[in-house]
Computed example of a mutant assay.
Amino acid sequence: MTASTSAPAHPGVPVPARVETSAPTAGTGHAPSHHGELLQGVFLDGDGRPCAGLVTLPMAAPGTRAVFTPRPGTPPDAVAVTPGGRTKAARAARLAIAACAARTGRPAYGGTLRLTGAVPLGLGMGSSTSDVLATVRAVADAYGLRLDPGTTARLAVRAEGASDPLMLDDRPVLFAQREGRVLEVLGRALPPLLVVGCLLAGGAPVDTLALPAPDADAADLRAYARLRDLLRRAVADGDTALLGRVATASARRAQRVLEHPEFATLEALARRTGAVGVQISHSGSVAGVLYDPTAPDAGARADACRRALDAHRVPYTRTFTADGPNSRCQPPSRDVDDSWTPSAPSLC
Protein backbone atom coordinates (compact mmCIF):
# COMPACT_ATOMS: atom_id res chain seq x y z
CA MET A 1 0.00 0.00 0.00
CA THR A 2 1.13 3.57 -0.67
CA ALA A 3 -0.13 6.89 0.64
CA SER A 4 -0.06 10.36 -0.92
CA THR A 5 -1.07 13.84 0.20
CA SER A 6 -4.36 15.40 -0.84
CA ALA A 7 -4.62 18.24 -3.35
CA PRO A 8 -2.77 21.44 -2.28
CA ALA A 9 -4.74 24.14 -0.53
CA HIS A 10 -3.13 26.79 -2.75
CA PRO A 11 -2.68 26.49 -6.50
CA GLY A 12 0.92 26.25 -7.62
CA VAL A 13 2.13 24.50 -4.48
CA PRO A 14 3.67 21.13 -5.58
CA VAL A 15 2.26 17.91 -4.21
CA PRO A 16 4.89 15.81 -2.42
CA ALA A 17 5.90 12.64 -4.24
CA ARG A 18 4.10 9.43 -3.36
CA VAL A 19 5.74 7.75 -0.44
CA GLU A 20 6.16 3.97 -0.18
CA THR A 21 4.61 2.96 3.15
CA SER A 22 4.20 -0.79 2.68
CA ALA A 23 6.64 -2.89 4.63
CA PRO A 24 8.96 -4.93 2.37
CA THR A 25 8.37 -8.64 2.65
CA ALA A 26 10.82 -11.50 2.45
CA GLY A 27 11.12 -13.30 -0.89
CA THR A 28 12.05 -16.90 -1.59
CA GLY A 29 13.67 -18.60 -4.55
CA HIS A 30 14.81 -22.07 -5.51
CA ALA A 31 17.21 -23.41 -8.13
CA PRO A 32 18.32 -26.94 -9.13
CA SER A 33 21.81 -28.22 -9.89
CA HIS A 34 23.25 -30.40 -12.65
CA HIS A 35 25.60 -33.36 -13.02
CA GLY A 36 28.29 -31.84 -15.17
CA GLU A 37 28.19 -31.71 -18.95
CA LEU A 38 27.26 -33.93 -21.85
CA LEU A 39 29.09 -31.67 -24.27
CA GLN A 40 31.34 -28.66 -23.84
CA GLY A 41 33.60 -26.87 -26.26
CA VAL A 42 33.76 -23.99 -28.72
CA PHE A 43 31.03 -23.62 -31.32
CA LEU A 44 30.06 -21.19 -34.05
CA ASP A 45 27.06 -19.02 -33.28
CA GLY A 46 24.49 -17.80 -35.80
CA ASP A 47 26.90 -15.12 -37.04
CA GLY A 48 29.76 -17.59 -37.48
CA ARG A 49 31.60 -16.35 -34.39
CA PRO A 50 33.40 -18.92 -32.20
CA CYS A 51 31.89 -19.04 -28.74
CA ALA A 52 32.28 -21.25 -25.69
CA GLY A 53 29.20 -23.39 -25.13
CA LEU A 54 27.94 -26.37 -23.16
CA VAL A 55 25.08 -28.82 -22.72
CA THR A 56 24.49 -29.85 -19.11
CA LEU A 57 23.06 -33.05 -17.68
CA PRO A 58 20.04 -31.91 -15.62
CA MET A 59 19.42 -33.06 -12.09
CA ALA A 60 16.30 -32.36 -10.04
CA ALA A 61 18.16 -32.50 -6.73
CA PRO A 62 20.06 -31.31 -4.82
CA GLY A 63 19.21 -27.65 -5.09
CA THR A 64 19.51 -24.30 -3.36
CA ARG A 65 16.83 -22.32 -1.51
CA ALA A 66 17.31 -18.61 -0.91
CA VAL A 67 15.42 -16.22 1.36
CA PHE A 68 15.99 -12.49 0.87
CA THR A 69 14.69 -10.14 3.55
CA PRO A 70 14.85 -6.43 2.64
CA ARG A 71 15.80 -4.00 5.40
CA PRO A 72 14.26 -0.53 4.94
CA GLY A 73 16.85 2.20 5.15
CA THR A 74 19.72 -0.18 4.35
CA PRO A 75 21.89 0.83 1.37
CA PRO A 76 21.20 -1.39 -1.64
CA ASP A 77 24.78 -2.63 -1.76
CA ALA A 78 24.64 -3.79 1.87
CA VAL A 79 23.68 -7.46 1.65
CA ALA A 80 24.62 -9.82 4.47
CA VAL A 81 24.85 -13.43 3.27
CA THR A 82 24.59 -16.61 5.32
CA PRO A 83 26.64 -18.75 5.04
CA GLY A 84 29.54 -16.38 4.63
CA GLY A 85 31.85 -16.46 1.66
CA ARG A 86 29.14 -16.70 -1.00
CA THR A 87 30.43 -13.62 -2.81
CA LYS A 88 28.79 -14.46 -6.14
CA ALA A 89 25.38 -14.74 -4.48
CA ALA A 90 25.93 -11.40 -2.73
CA ARG A 91 26.84 -9.80 -6.05
CA ALA A 92 23.75 -11.35 -7.66
CA ALA A 93 21.57 -9.95 -4.88
CA ARG A 94 22.89 -6.42 -5.43
CA LEU A 95 22.39 -6.66 -9.18
CA ALA A 96 18.87 -8.06 -8.76
CA ILE A 97 17.92 -5.39 -6.22
CA ALA A 98 18.90 -2.66 -8.68
CA ALA A 99 17.07 -4.34 -11.57
CA CYS A 100 13.89 -5.02 -9.61
CA ALA A 101 13.78 -1.57 -8.03
CA ALA A 102 14.11 0.00 -11.48
CA ARG A 103 11.26 -2.14 -12.84
CA THR A 104 8.87 -1.52 -9.97
CA GLY A 105 9.78 2.02 -8.95
CA ARG A 106 10.12 0.82 -5.37
CA PRO A 107 13.07 1.71 -3.14
CA ALA A 108 16.27 -0.27 -3.52
CA TYR A 109 16.99 -1.70 -0.08
CA GLY A 110 19.75 -4.00 1.01
CA GLY A 111 19.03 -6.75 3.47
CA THR A 112 19.86 -10.28 4.49
CA LEU A 113 20.23 -13.31 2.26
CA ARG A 114 20.12 -16.85 3.63
CA LEU A 115 21.09 -19.80 1.44
CA THR A 116 20.33 -23.42 2.26
CA GLY A 117 20.82 -26.57 0.25
CA ALA A 118 23.08 -29.51 -0.36
CA VAL A 119 24.79 -28.79 -3.68
CA PRO A 120 28.46 -29.73 -3.11
CA LEU A 121 30.91 -26.92 -3.78
CA GLY A 122 33.68 -27.17 -6.36
CA LEU A 123 32.62 -30.47 -7.94
CA GLY A 124 31.27 -28.99 -11.17
CA MET A 125 27.58 -29.35 -10.33
CA GLY A 126 26.68 -25.70 -10.80
CA SER A 127 26.74 -24.80 -7.10
CA SER A 128 27.51 -21.13 -7.72
CA THR A 129 24.87 -20.82 -10.45
CA SER A 130 22.37 -22.54 -8.17
CA ASP A 131 23.17 -20.00 -5.43
CA VAL A 132 22.96 -17.10 -7.85
CA LEU A 133 19.74 -18.20 -9.51
CA ALA A 134 17.98 -18.89 -6.21
CA THR A 135 19.14 -15.47 -4.99
CA VAL A 136 17.87 -13.60 -8.05
CA ARG A 137 14.52 -15.36 -7.76
CA ALA A 138 14.28 -14.55 -4.05
CA VAL A 139 14.99 -10.85 -4.61
CA ALA A 140 12.49 -10.74 -7.47
CA ASP A 141 9.90 -12.44 -5.25
CA ALA A 142 10.45 -9.81 -2.56
CA TYR A 143 9.63 -7.19 -5.20
CA GLY A 144 6.59 -9.11 -6.43
CA LEU A 145 8.28 -9.99 -9.72
CA ARG A 146 9.06 -13.10 -11.70
CA LEU A 147 11.94 -12.34 -14.04
CA ASP A 148 12.12 -13.94 -17.46
CA PRO A 149 14.93 -16.45 -18.15
CA GLY A 150 16.82 -14.09 -20.44
CA THR A 151 17.02 -11.35 -17.81
CA THR A 152 17.94 -13.91 -15.15
CA ALA A 153 20.70 -15.35 -17.36
CA ARG A 154 22.21 -11.91 -17.95
CA LEU A 155 22.21 -11.15 -14.23
CA ALA A 156 23.79 -14.52 -13.51
CA VAL A 157 26.62 -13.97 -15.99
CA ARG A 158 27.27 -10.50 -14.54
CA ALA A 159 27.42 -12.02 -11.06
CA GLU A 160 29.55 -15.06 -11.95
CA GLY A 161 31.45 -14.34 -15.15
CA ALA A 162 30.09 -17.61 -16.55
CA SER A 163 26.81 -19.33 -15.78
CA ASP A 164 25.15 -22.69 -16.26
CA PRO A 165 21.71 -22.75 -17.95
CA LEU A 166 19.77 -23.69 -14.79
CA MET A 167 17.36 -20.78 -15.32
CA LEU A 168 15.97 -22.35 -18.51
CA ASP A 169 13.31 -25.01 -18.91
CA ASP A 170 14.10 -28.70 -19.29
CA ARG A 171 14.73 -28.65 -23.03
CA PRO A 172 18.34 -29.52 -23.90
CA VAL A 173 20.14 -26.41 -25.11
CA LEU A 174 23.60 -25.46 -26.26
CA PHE A 175 24.28 -22.51 -23.94
CA ALA A 176 26.95 -19.83 -24.21
CA GLN A 177 27.93 -19.81 -20.55
CA ARG A 178 30.08 -16.67 -20.72
CA GLU A 179 27.42 -14.67 -22.55
CA GLY A 180 24.22 -15.98 -21.00
CA ARG A 181 22.47 -16.84 -24.25
CA VAL A 182 21.16 -19.93 -26.00
CA LEU A 183 23.08 -20.90 -29.12
CA GLU A 184 20.64 -23.65 -30.06
CA VAL A 185 17.64 -25.51 -28.68
CA LEU A 186 18.57 -29.09 -29.51
CA GLY A 187 15.10 -30.58 -29.14
CA ARG A 188 12.29 -31.27 -26.72
CA ALA A 189 14.02 -33.65 -24.29
CA LEU A 190 17.16 -35.71 -23.84
CA PRO A 191 17.01 -39.43 -24.56
CA PRO A 192 16.45 -41.37 -21.31
CA LEU A 193 19.56 -42.04 -19.25
CA LEU A 194 20.42 -44.09 -16.20
CA VAL A 195 23.43 -42.46 -14.55
CA VAL A 196 25.77 -44.01 -12.00
CA GLY A 197 27.53 -41.05 -10.43
CA CYS A 198 31.04 -40.95 -9.02
CA LEU A 199 33.86 -38.59 -8.17
CA LEU A 200 37.20 -38.41 -9.96
CA ALA A 201 40.39 -37.03 -8.45
CA GLY A 202 39.17 -38.19 -5.04
CA GLY A 203 36.41 -35.59 -5.16
CA ALA A 204 38.88 -32.72 -4.80
CA PRO A 205 37.20 -29.36 -5.56
CA VAL A 206 38.27 -27.64 -8.77
CA ASP A 207 38.96 -23.91 -8.97
CA THR A 208 37.11 -23.19 -12.20
CA LEU A 209 38.50 -19.67 -12.43
CA ALA A 210 42.01 -21.13 -12.51
CA LEU A 211 41.26 -23.25 -15.58
CA PRO A 212 42.50 -21.87 -18.91
CA ALA A 213 39.97 -20.06 -21.06
CA PRO A 214 38.53 -22.27 -23.79
CA ASP A 215 40.33 -22.03 -27.10
CA ALA A 216 40.01 -23.91 -30.37
CA ASP A 217 41.79 -24.08 -33.68
CA ALA A 218 40.15 -24.99 -36.99
CA ALA A 219 40.42 -28.73 -36.32
CA ASP A 220 38.83 -28.30 -32.88
CA LEU A 221 35.97 -26.28 -34.33
CA ARG A 222 35.27 -29.02 -36.87
CA ALA A 223 35.33 -31.67 -34.14
CA TYR A 224 32.97 -29.72 -31.92
CA ALA A 225 30.63 -29.02 -34.84
CA ARG A 226 30.52 -32.77 -35.56
CA LEU A 227 29.67 -33.55 -31.92
CA ARG A 228 26.99 -30.87 -31.98
CA ASP A 229 25.44 -32.44 -35.08
CA LEU A 230 25.52 -35.90 -33.50
CA LEU A 231 23.96 -34.65 -30.27
CA ARG A 232 21.20 -32.93 -32.22
CA ARG A 233 20.51 -36.23 -33.98
CA ALA A 234 20.57 -38.18 -30.70
CA VAL A 235 17.96 -35.84 -29.22
CA ALA A 236 15.78 -35.93 -32.33
CA ASP A 237 15.85 -39.74 -32.50
CA GLY A 238 15.80 -40.41 -28.75
CA ASP A 239 19.05 -42.34 -29.29
CA THR A 240 20.62 -43.01 -25.89
CA ALA A 241 23.58 -44.89 -27.38
CA LEU A 242 24.50 -42.00 -29.66
CA LEU A 243 24.16 -39.56 -26.78
CA GLY A 244 26.61 -41.71 -24.82
CA ARG A 245 29.15 -41.63 -27.63
CA VAL A 246 28.94 -37.83 -27.82
CA ALA A 247 29.36 -37.44 -24.06
CA THR A 248 32.35 -39.80 -24.05
CA ALA A 249 34.05 -37.97 -26.91
CA SER A 250 33.55 -34.64 -25.15
CA ALA A 251 34.90 -36.07 -21.88
CA ARG A 252 38.00 -37.38 -23.67
CA ARG A 253 38.71 -33.99 -25.18
CA ALA A 254 38.39 -32.38 -21.75
CA GLN A 255 41.16 -34.61 -20.38
CA ARG A 256 43.67 -32.49 -22.25
CA VAL A 257 43.08 -29.93 -19.50
CA LEU A 258 41.66 -31.90 -16.57
CA GLU A 259 43.94 -34.97 -16.79
CA HIS A 260 41.89 -37.06 -14.36
CA PRO A 261 44.07 -40.07 -13.44
CA GLU A 262 41.02 -42.37 -13.14
CA PHE A 263 39.45 -41.49 -16.48
CA ALA A 264 40.90 -44.49 -18.35
CA THR A 265 39.63 -46.76 -15.58
CA LEU A 266 36.17 -45.18 -15.80
CA GLU A 267 36.02 -45.80 -19.55
CA ALA A 268 37.20 -49.39 -19.14
CA LEU A 269 34.63 -50.31 -16.51
CA ALA A 270 31.94 -48.59 -18.59
CA ARG A 271 32.78 -50.89 -21.50
CA ARG A 272 32.88 -53.99 -19.29
CA THR A 273 29.46 -53.28 -17.78
CA GLY A 274 27.69 -52.45 -21.05
CA ALA A 275 27.37 -48.70 -20.59
CA VAL A 276 26.62 -46.43 -23.53
CA GLY A 277 29.33 -44.02 -22.41
CA VAL A 278 30.61 -41.70 -19.72
CA GLN A 279 30.16 -38.04 -18.93
CA ILE A 280 32.06 -35.66 -16.69
CA SER A 281 32.04 -32.16 -15.38
CA HIS A 282 34.40 -30.19 -17.58
CA SER A 283 35.08 -27.87 -14.64
CA GLY A 284 35.01 -30.25 -11.69
CA SER A 285 35.39 -33.83 -10.49
CA VAL A 286 31.87 -35.24 -10.74
CA ALA A 287 31.37 -37.90 -13.42
CA GLY A 288 28.81 -40.44 -14.50
CA VAL A 289 28.63 -43.79 -16.26
CA LEU A 290 25.68 -43.78 -18.66
CA TYR A 291 23.23 -46.64 -19.34
CA ASP A 292 20.10 -47.07 -21.39
CA PRO A 293 17.35 -47.44 -18.76
CA THR A 294 15.07 -49.21 -21.27
CA ALA A 295 17.48 -52.16 -21.56
CA PRO A 296 16.10 -55.24 -19.74
CA ASP A 297 19.25 -55.65 -17.65
CA ALA A 298 19.92 -51.95 -17.01
CA GLY A 299 19.65 -52.35 -13.24
CA ALA A 300 22.09 -55.25 -13.17
CA ARG A 301 24.57 -53.30 -15.28
CA ALA A 302 24.34 -50.33 -12.92
CA ASP A 303 24.89 -52.65 -9.94
CA ALA A 304 27.97 -54.10 -11.62
CA CYS A 305 29.26 -50.59 -12.23
CA ARG A 306 28.90 -49.68 -8.57
CA ARG A 307 30.83 -52.77 -7.54
CA ALA A 308 33.55 -51.96 -10.09
CA LEU A 309 33.83 -48.40 -8.83
CA ASP A 310 34.28 -49.70 -5.31
CA ALA A 311 36.91 -52.20 -6.44
CA HIS A 312 38.91 -49.41 -8.08
CA ARG A 313 38.41 -47.05 -5.11
CA VAL A 314 36.52 -44.49 -7.18
CA PRO A 315 33.97 -42.88 -4.81
CA TYR A 316 30.39 -43.72 -5.81
CA THR A 317 27.80 -41.02 -5.19
CA ARG A 318 24.30 -41.72 -6.48
CA THR A 319 22.31 -43.42 -9.23
CA PHE A 320 19.63 -41.38 -10.98
CA THR A 321 17.59 -41.25 -14.15
CA ALA A 322 17.52 -38.26 -16.45
CA ASP A 323 14.93 -37.91 -19.18
CA GLY A 324 14.08 -34.31 -19.82
CA PRO A 325 11.86 -32.92 -17.04
CA ASN A 326 12.09 -36.15 -15.03
CA SER A 327 15.41 -36.47 -13.22
CA ARG A 328 15.21 -38.46 -10.03
CA CYS A 329 17.49 -40.40 -7.74
CA GLN A 330 17.14 -44.14 -7.41
CA PRO A 331 18.28 -46.41 -4.59
CA PRO A 332 20.66 -49.17 -5.58
CA SER A 333 19.55 -52.78 -5.60
CA ARG A 334 19.33 -54.52 -2.23
CA ASP A 335 22.49 -56.52 -2.83
CA VAL A 336 24.60 -53.40 -3.30
CA ASP A 337 26.26 -51.66 -0.37
CA ASP A 338 25.14 -48.01 -0.45
CA SER A 339 27.59 -46.87 2.19
CA TRP A 340 29.21 -43.48 1.75
CA THR A 341 32.89 -42.75 1.95
CA PRO A 342 33.88 -39.53 3.78
CA SER A 343 35.06 -37.98 0.50
CA ALA A 344 31.86 -38.81 -1.37
CA PRO A 345 29.08 -36.39 -0.39
CA SER A 346 25.50 -37.19 -1.23
CA LEU A 347 24.48 -35.58 -4.48
CA CYS A 348 20.75 -35.97 -3.95
Rank of each mutant, 00 (worst) to 15 (best):
M1F: 03
S4N: 08
H10E: 14
P11N: 11
P11L: 15
V13W: 12
V13L: 14
P14F: 07
V15W: 07
V15L: 15
P16C: 08
R18T: 13
P24M: 10
A26P: 11
G27E: 10
P32A: 09
L38N: 04
L38T: 03
L39K: 07
L39A: 11
G46T: 12
G46Q: 14
L57T: 06
M59Y: 00
M59D: 02
A61S: 14
P62D: 01
R65V: 13
R65N: 10
A66Q: 01
V67A: 11
R71E: 14
P75I: 00
D77E: 12
A80C: 06
G84S: 09
T87S: 12
R91G: 01
L95R: 02
A96N: 00
C100Q: 01
A108L: 01
A108Y: 00
V119P: 04
V132R: 05
L133W: 11
A138Q: 07
D141C: 12
P149D: 13
P149N: 14
T151N: 13
A156T: 15
A162R: 15
S163K: 04
D164H: 10
P165N: 05
D169Y: 01
D169H: 02
D169W: 01
D170C: 02
A176Q: 01
E179I: 00
V195C: 12
V206N: 10
L209T: 14
L211H: 06
A213L: 14
D215V: 06
A216E: 08
A216T: 04
D220R: 06
D220L: 03
A223W: 03
R228I: 00
R228C: 01
D229L: 02
R233H: 04
R233I: 07
G238F: 04
D239K: 06
T240D: 05
R245Y: 02
R245Q: 15
V246H: 10
V246E: 13
R252I: 13
R253Y: 13
Q255V: 07
L266H: 04
L269K: 04
L269Q: 05
I280E: 02
S283M: 08
S283A: 15
S283C: 08
S285Q: 09
A295Q: 15
C305Y: 05
A308G: 10
H312S: 12
R318H: 11
F320C: 12
A322T: 10
P325E: 05
D335K: 00
D338K: 00
D338T: 05
W340G: 08
S343K: 09
A344P: 11
